[in-house]
Amino acid sequence: MPDVKDVGALMSVTYDVAARDFVRAGEAASKLKRLLQQLGLDPAVIRRAAIAAYEAEMNIVIHSYGGQIKVDITPESIEMICEDSGPGIPDIEKALQEGYSTATEEIREMGFGAGMGLPNIQRSADQFRIESTVGEGTCLQVTILHEAGE
């Protein structure tokens, strides 16, 4: 159950994401998508938010030890903070390149590991920040504006 509370933003929701749980993987993104549809946001904005949330969720599932996706809805934007504890990313610049992936063979067989997740998040976002500390974890900050992105 997402935990709904009001903290400055019009609305905040937090979704927990468990590592390696491929049965539930994708649930946070699809719950977020339904929420945004219920709020009546623009379909194109919902699409971008869903893609970003999904890729971030999958990265937490695949590459981390578990984390959370926090979403704030403000009057102007959707703000997502995707935070995990895990190995972190040693070379962020590399990780942001299309096609770069450290996914194992096993993960690739499941259809992931094309190295497209982070680039897709970046493409979907109006603002994007990534911070990572090796041995601690990774934090993405994604902003999607309600009106006229790209």
């Binding site: 709904v4 219920q38 709020l39 009546g40 379909p43």
Partner: peptide
């Protein structure tokens, strides 16, 4: 044309109120 059936209200803040009530 889209005909979204999930939207709770045309106004964002009212939709959020309804969303909270829904939860």
């Amino acid at each position: 044309e889209p005909r979204s059936i999930l939207k709770l209200d045309d106004d964002l803040s009212r939709a959020i109120e309804k969303m909270e009530l829904l939860e």
